[in-house]
Design a protein around this nucleic acid. Structure first.
Lengths: 198, 198, 198, 198
DNA sequence: GATGAATGAGTATTCATTCAT
DNA sequence: TATGAATGAATACTCATTCAT
């Protein structure tokens, strides 16, 4: 039975989920290379053998963990977008989104670091990143339209916006250059996005 | 002779250099973890033992390779900055710099991926990245001043500019989103930088 | 699974035992430093990996081998002590014990050399030697009491006795000084012990 | 020039001596296996290459170091024997010798441990031990004769005596069994030797 | 004689994956 | 389905010894 089996029974589905959660936890804390499958199995409360019935190999666990990670990090931002008053002030709206994004990154900063690294090391992970980026970019596009912002080259603009915010979050959470005024940087970023979407 | 020795003789200096080059080549092509020290030695045409006279351990080779990589990638940009007419048009100047940067990234795209990944996995590599970032940011600051651009918060502005260009290069070299118009994205990025430096 | 596991199943217990036996055999024949773990595994008929489920590291195998060695070497002497007629002649009793001890040393002379050497090179092995020495000294004390020999400073006396017999065995088994009359030396040693226990 | 050369020039003789001293020092402090030839050369202030003109291999250095060690440890005892009043009290004489021996062992306890270990691991070292034992036993024989002690089986007796004192020194310097009364043990050992030589 | 740079064989340990039960 | 014992390939690093200079 060398094929990976998609669990059907409820208990099996939960078991697979437990393994993914355990994988995400340990990979975030210790890193992918320093986490071994036996540990993940133990953390998930299953045997080492069973892991290979739900996952093709170790990287397959990582793939699911990355998906889980993106769900976690984008969810609060999506919720925020839904709750925002479409008639509100754009500057305020952007600040809300950015702070929400910084918040999510801070919460998952351990995982973030490792996931980015892995996305540069493995093509499959990289593709999952691009896909997730698409998903959120599309949602932002819909959101912007709902607040009355549209026009040509919106895809490109939202991509630039995405990268601006990502870079900002990354600076904010990890770099901590002592000489950088982060509040100013946030405001300047908002300013640029306003120019971009103008 | 467990101590690491700094080569003095010309032949030894060249030998160390050969090992760094071999390391950079193989790490770029196969990745750090899939490259072993024996291969690096062989590629450099030396014995495995001699590697440990010039380098503390395997990671030490990586450290030197990262330095080499940054020298390679920043050098053409620095040269470009020196050759730019200070009285020239800002938009044209920025485009020159950005194209030069995209060019360097394209040339070292393999290395780039691996180095970024490693910078997220290892603190020493990360520090070397931050240091290199400082160095180039400082040079850009000096350059901008020389073309008459200065003012408050220049550090923050140049950091944002650095991230904008980095993201652009990265998009350009790797993502290749089919639906993105890269020429437009370059122009829009230049536009944002102009706003930023206004 | 980096943790060392204590085998529970009968087959696993036997497997661990086989590794210890293989270790003792090879270490005795070739010496600890010239024996590698792969050889031990092969001799035991197991894979190299399994060794590290039952033993922390290579030295851990040695530790168990030393224990096995002491069990082997002391067992016949203990059996002899139990079978000796408590009302018998002391001189005869001592000769019996000494010959039994020489016999055991002769049988395990290869192991003996290596174990003594290692006890001088490693603290853990040394402690195991001291412990084993205690155990046998205590048993000799009990035995002597059972044949009516007691008094002050018995601990010190038995220690001297232990060293006398150890030196004798060592001389007998290894030195083979051509000009030494070993039968006489045995008799003289018995004589000294009699004086000691007087 | 693969042959080991016996130095003739005075400077060469001193160089060889320096290497032996450095070897003895480092082997005593760190152990033979944890000392490498480069370190010995450095400690002696010579190049690594020159070592192999004076010594066949690493073990050859050890061999000379063992010799040096025995010279060091036996010298004070021989001096003591020469200074002892031949008409003096035997018990007092023995105590003097034993204390002098314990003293020498204490002073070279680091080296002692390592040398014993090596004597059990290597036949050449072992032979050097036996030879040295012969030398001192012969000298003790002469000494005893000079104080009027002679008779049949003196060789065997002095060997037993040698082992008794060696064991005592070893116990004294290393074991330090908490429950052993060492002063008593010294006295009892003297007593046994008196019985032996009676 | 002397140097010290260079060699390259040798080895303990880990861990993703398999498979007998 | 599930277990967890077993496999064995893979690798950084050391160091006695040699040899070009």
């Amino acid at each position: 039975m060398p094929d990976v089996r998609e669990p059907i029974k409820q208990t099996s589905i939960e078991k697979k989920k437990r393994i993914i959660q355990a994988g995400l936890k340990l990979i975030s804390e210790k890193g992918y290379f320093k986490t071994n499958t036996a540990e993940i199995a133990k953390e998930a409360g299953v045997s080492t053998g069973i892991v290979y019935q739900y996952f093709k190999d170790k990287k397959d666990i990582l793939l699911y963990a990355v998906k889980e990670y993106f769900d976690n990090i984008f969810e609060p931002i999506e919720i925020k977008m839904k709750s925002i008053n479409p008639r509100g002030n754009l500057e305020y709206t952007l600040k809300e989104l950015i702070l929400s994004s910084i918040d999510a990154h801070t919460k998952y900063s351990l995982a973030h670091e490792e996931m980015i690294a892995m996305s540069h090391l493995d093509e499959d992970i990289h593709n999952m990143f691009i896909e997730s980026e698409h998903r959120i970019v599309d949602k932002v596009l819909v959101f912007l339209e709902s607040v009355g912002i549209s026009g040509p080259h919106m895809h490109e603009k939202v991509h630039i916006m995405y990268n601006l915010i990502e870079s900002l979050c990354h600076e904010y959470v990890y770099h901590k250059h002592s000489f950088i005024d982060y509040d100013y940087t946030i405001d300047e970023t908002i300013n640029l996005i306003k120019t971009l979407l103008k």
